[in-house]
Write a protein that binds this DNA or RNA. Sequence first.
DNA 1: CCAATTTAGATTGGCGTCAAACTATTTTGC
DNA 2: GCAAAATAGTTTGACGCCAATCTAAATTGG
Lengths: 161, 161
Amino acid sequence: MARKPDLRVVPAAAREPTLDLGILPNQVGYHLRLAQIAVFEDFAETFHDHGMSPGRFGVMVLIEANPGVSQGQLAQAIHLDRSTMVSVIDYLEGRDLVVRKASATDRRTNALWITPKGAELLADLKKLVEQHEERILADLSAEERAQLVQLLNRVKRQNLL
Amino acid sequence: MARKPDLRVVPAAAREPTLDLGILPNQVGYHLRLAQIAVFEDFAETFHDHGMSPGRFGVMVLIEANPGVSQGQLAQAIHLDRSTMVSVIDYLEGRDLVVRKASATDRRTNALWITPKGAELLADLKKLVEQHEERILADLSAEERAQLVQLLNRVKRQNLL
DNA sequence: CCAATTTAGATTGGCGTCAAACTATTTTGC
DNA sequence: GCAAAATAGTTTGACGCCAATCTAAATTGG
C-alpha cells in the first residue's frame, strides 16, 4: 500500500489531521458506533440536569407501562445485567421515583412501581425525549426514519430477544 | 406415565410475560442501541480470543493507515478520550503490536507505528471482521447495507467531527 | 414430602470509559 | 525574547457495565 506522508506545513492551530480511516468506513459497525455516540451525546446533554441516562429512562418507562414488574424482567427486557439493575433501581428509589414493594406471589422478587413523583418527572422526560429525537433526526423524513428503524431491526440479533 | 419430550414444559425462567415496552419502540435511539448491542456481542465473540475490542481494532487500523500518527490524533479520530488512548496503546505496545517512537518534530507527542507482528495480526483480524460483518448483515442486500450506512451518517452529529 | 436444583436480588471485583489535574513541551502574543 | 497560554501524554478518581459469587426463596423430581 502506498504511504501518504503528510507534507503539509501548516500552523499547528490550523492543523487538520484528517486521518486516513483505512477500512473503517467500509464497516457498518463503525458507522453504527458513530451514530450511537452522536445520539448518546445529545441524550446525555438533554437529560443531564435530570440525572437521567438512556438506561434509567428506559427503566422508568417500562415500570410505568408494567406496574409490579420485577428487576429481573426489566434487566432482560432492556438488556442490562441483573446486577446492574440493582444499582439503577437503587438510584431511582433513592430519588423517590420508583418503589420496591413486596411481591404477593414470590418473596424473592421486588415488585416495582412508579411513584407519583416519578410519573410526574417521566411525563416531562417524555417530552424531552421527543425533542431529542426530533433534533438528532432533523435531516430525515418520516419515511427515512421508518426505513432506518426497519433496517436496524434486520441486523442479526439471534443472541438477543 | 410415558416420558415424552414436551416442548411446552419450559423452566420457570421462560415464563416471559413479554413486557409492554411503552414508548421505547417509538424511539430511533432505542433501536439503534439494540442493533449496537447485537453487533458488539458478535464482534466481542469473534475477537475475544485475540484480545481485541472494536476500539483496539480501530486503533490498529488507523496506525497502519497513518504511520507516525500521535495518540491525540487517534483519540480524536476514533472518539475516545486521550486518557483512554493511553491504556489502549499501553496494551497494544505490551503485546508488541504497535510501538511508541519519538516524534522528529514535537517531543511531546508519541509517533505510533505498527510492528511486523502487529501487521501480521491485523491482516488476520481484517478477514475476521469481514466475516463478522457478513454475519450480522446477512439479511441485508448490498443496496440495503449502503442505505443503512447512508441513513446512519445523516443522524445529526454536529457535536462530533 | 423433602433434598437437589433453579431463580431473584444483592455484593464484590474487574474492565472500559470520561473528566480533572499534573508535567513537559510547544505555541502564542506582547 | 519571553512570559502566558495551549497542547500531548499521563495519572488518578469516578461511574457504568458485566461476570462470578452469595443468600434466601421457590421449584423440581424422586
